[in-house]
């Protein structure tokens, strides 16, 4: 069974604002054909102020689809339409204290229903522009379509590049077989074949951008760490920069992050963000592993000699 948060369960067992709003003047109907879920969102909007006075939902879907719908109606009631349009699917997921990666599309459906309802109110035609494919990477909730499109757009050739560009496969690595299959298929379309040992092209560096100074690099790394810090602190953890040595970025995890089973995944995510910020591939390594790292490198070469 899914590992649903208490809040998801609570919103599923006692959904708020279930049913259609009476005298609604905005209706959004969306569905996800791939998973079969569908949602009708009805709003009563005050024409004078564009404020959402009431919101109601009707959902054909699983526990998290119902909980996401319930959360959405709670979040947007009282907002103006422009404020409501700022609500992201991540906001819905956060309101519910998180959703399993396989279920993030339920929160996407909520956001789309909102967009559709606002378009309906304003007399506009709303069309959905996001494609959804089968989930490939469960660590970072990346689906097949996103990977395919990113490979095409950036001419990617290796699993490592897919990890760098999409995060898919950057966690437990169990999906690498699936990523290789997508690479084979997409490369095959243009008459190329996937070669596991193909050289990795570096991440794109903006043309003419000067090489960063050490101080500038450290500033950028600190900026990334500052941006993830609130998330870590919410889980009673923290992170600090210890040293930067070429492409190795040494950090120290603190508080609840120490010994957390998700620490490796967290570091992988931070590594991707830092790589993006610096425009070069770097490795983020726990400072404690530094000594071990050099020691094991030594013993590996020893084995190779034996």
């Amino acid at each position: 069974m899914w590992d649903y948060s208490e809040t998801v369960q609570e919103h599923f067992f006692s959904p708020r604002n279930a049913g259609a709003v009476k005298d609604a003047n905005a209706v959004g109907e969306v569905g996800s054909l791939s998973c079969g879920d569908a949602l009708r969102l009805t709003l009563k909007v005050d024409p004078a102020t564009d404020t959402i006075l009431a919101a109601g939902f009707q959902t054909f879907g699983c526990g998290s689809a119902i909980a996401s719908s319930s959360a959405l109606t709670e979040i947007i009631t009282g907002m103006t339409l422009d404020q409501a349009l700022q609500v992201s699917n991540q906001d819905i997921a956060d309101y519910l204290d998180g959703l399993p990666p396989e279920k993030m599309h339920c929160s996407v459906m909520g956001r789309e229903a909102l967009q559709a309802a606002v378009a309906n109110y304003r007399g506009e035609v709303w069309s959905d522009n996001h494609e959804e494919g089968a989930l490939v990477c469960k660590c970072f909730a990346v689906d097949e379509k996103l990977i395919e499109n990113t490979i095409r757009a950036n001419n990617l050739k290796t699993v490592e590049e897919v990890v760098n560009y999409t995060k898919a496969g950057g966690g437990c690595s169990a999906c690498h077989e699936g990523v290789e299959e997508i690479l084979s298929r997409v490369l095959g379309e243009s008459g190329h074949s996937f070669a596991p040992s193909a050289g990795t092209t570096p991440l794109p560096v903006k043309a003419g951008r000067p090489r960063l100074t050490t101080v500038e690099r450290i500033r950028r790394i600190e900026t990334v760490l500052d941006s993830v810090r609130p998330t870590l602190q919410r889980d009673h953890g923290d992170i600090e920069l210890v040293d930067v040595e070429g492409r190795q970025v040494y950090v120290k995890l603190r508080g609840a992050c120490v010994g957390c089973q998700m620490a490796a995944v967290t570091l992988d995510g931070i590594q991707t963000q830092i790589s993006e910020a610096l425009g070069e591939f770097v490795r983020v390594i726990p400072a404690e592993a530094r000594a071990r790292h050099s020691a094991s490198a030594a013993s590996e070469s020893h084995v190779a000699c034996a």
Binding site: F60, A116, D128
Partner: peptide, 25 residues
Amino acid sequence: RRLSPYWGETGPIVDPQQAFAPTYA
């Protein structure tokens, strides 16, 4: 069923596929 867009007051809405036709992703 009370939460379902395919269900009316007492039974399935008439011609459910027509009456509720969401935009599909």
